[in-house]
Design a protein around this nucleic acid. Sequence first.
DNA 1: CTGAAAGCGCTTACAG
DNA 2: CTGAAAGCGCTTACAG
Lengths: 347, 347
Amino acid sequence: MATKISQRPKPTLAMVARQAGVSAPTVSKVVNGREDVSAETRARVLAALEQAGYQSPLQRRSAAETGTVVEVVIDVLDSAYMIEVLNGILQFAAAADVEILVSVTGPALSNLRSPERRAQRMLDEGRAGMIVVTSAFSEAQLQAFRRRKIPVVVIDPLNPPSADVVSVGATNWAGGKAATEHLLDLGHRRIAYIGGIEKAECNQARLHGYMAALMARGITVDPRYIISGGRFRRESGVAGLQALLQLDQLPSAIFAASDAIAMGVLAEAGRHGIRVPEDISLIGFDGTRQGEESVPSLSSVAQPLEEMGRAALRSLLRQARGEILDSHRVELATQLIVRGSTAAPAS
Amino acid sequence: MATKISQRPKPTLAMVARQAGVSAPTVSKVVNGREDVSAETRARVLAALEQAGYQSPLQRRSAAETGTVVEVVIDVLDSAYMIEVLNGILQFAAAADVEILVSVTGPALSNLRSPERRAQRMLDEGRAGMIVVTSAFSEAQLQAFRRRKIPVVVIDPLNPPSADVVSVGATNWAGGKAATEHLLDLGHRRIAYIGGIEKAECNQARLHGYMAALMARGITVDPRYIISGGRFRRESGVAGLQALLQLDQLPSAIFAASDAIAMGVLAEAGRHGIRVPEDISLIGFDGTRQGEESVPSLSSVAQPLEEMGRAALRSLLRQARGEILDSHRVELATQLIVRGSTAAPAS
DNA sequence: CTGAAAGCGCTTACAG
DNA sequence: CTGAAAGCGCTTACAG
């Protein structure tokens, strides 16, 4: 697929040696990482190697015969979000004849230990690049990949990624604003926000979209109605509603930062005899099938999750092919989906 | 991991040539698959090659430096079942330092085209083996792998696999029986079965467990209460309940062959104002989180899905290591989980 | 169809 | 630390 076909005769050690003004054995030593070469000579040889585009016979065979393999790193495969993203990646991969290596790091993100070794290994194995889904990535980790020119794409980065990493996401701010405006349009004034991972970029954007919508209508943001510090999971919805129940006045509507959180709210509401949408309106974020199938079916802001997976892979393959990217941030549109969990307030 | 370290000096072309009583160039031709060698000579060289365990330098490098890679083939990643199985595989892989290549074939199982090429490619790339999840596998396909001695493990095979393929599954017959007995114990006599893929082994086993339970209590199996021919998906539950609604008497309980089917039944029941469990009892199969979180929470027969994934990978790695297996069928226990969707019949 | 001879690309052992 | 020389493993071109 992404094979660069050069018409010039493949460069040999001897050619590189001539170019660098040294002997073939010396080049051989540099290629094999042996110690007995002066730093100065090594630098010169390295430059010539790079310039000639030299590949050892072994590398050549990998490049020629090995298919394109892309690594995908996720924390755990247990949310509808993750599944749809992965599905998008896998389906595009099948169409593009690319292979996908999936690895889970577990919730402890630091499990991606010794990034240097991992990056080197990816280089040795001729892997085309790496897609990271929602995991935090430290600068040190990214540098290991950058130095080896291994392309990395991050979907919904937790921390704002550095300039030379492509990130893929949705229009979270606009989506958060649309969800809140929908509730406002229905007549709600007391609207709560139950967030996911606090420092995650997408959470921040959704929260600020929510605040922007309120402020545009002249409604003061009540900090007690902003619940944060959880994950994008069901448990956060359960805990979030419990926290709201402590207040002397319950909000009339809740904007949950993910469908999973909303499902938690829904379950906990049922446990307290609170009806949705009669007693409280509820809107989620993600637009997963899970929300569509719940009772009542969940209003939500849909993210094109499969498309985000495809976009990430597409961008990665472009980079691997050496194409120049038009953007370092791919942002796909969200869409408000009104279903059964939102209605006008009771009073 | 599974590297066989041989102490004898690595065999060279020249050694093999001496062994076969031919020249080095001739062996070279055979190794490179060139045509201009007599069949007889080729056979002799091939034998010597095999006997000496000759590997080209390229093969040698793959064997030495490449980690263990296992391929996993699924149709689509869209059911809770598939996700839990895959999660089990991925988590065990992370612990065992094995890499997992996931590919989706799409619902058209035949997409696994040209098995010969695929098997050859796996051999060339040094892949340790392949895990197939619920996809049908033809004899011709299996043979391509068998001839190359590439281990294959099938999780929940659709067709009974041939003797030299290891299959992994749960105690489906016992589980089907347990589900039905639970309904019988509650006092139900009119119990329907809504099945998944009809010819799938696991579906057959669940159905026969259901029939066995009925017959053991002297209840005649009513063929109109057996709905089959769908897939293990939500849609089958929707269609299944619709079919049952056509009968002049609705059953008082339904055993659905998967949680996804049960969720479809639940949604469709809601649409018809049929309450679960007041009007009809419902039990699923799989024990997924999805069923646990539904309203009412779903009684089910839990399969250890993650454990099935782990067991498949464990068995595959054993085979790749050349160990002898104690069983060609790994069968893990199911467990009846009684939750809110089953109760005594109304009358 | 076979193999002696030449050659290719790389590595090794070692003299300087 | 460098490279001329020898060597290794494989392949190619071609005579028989």
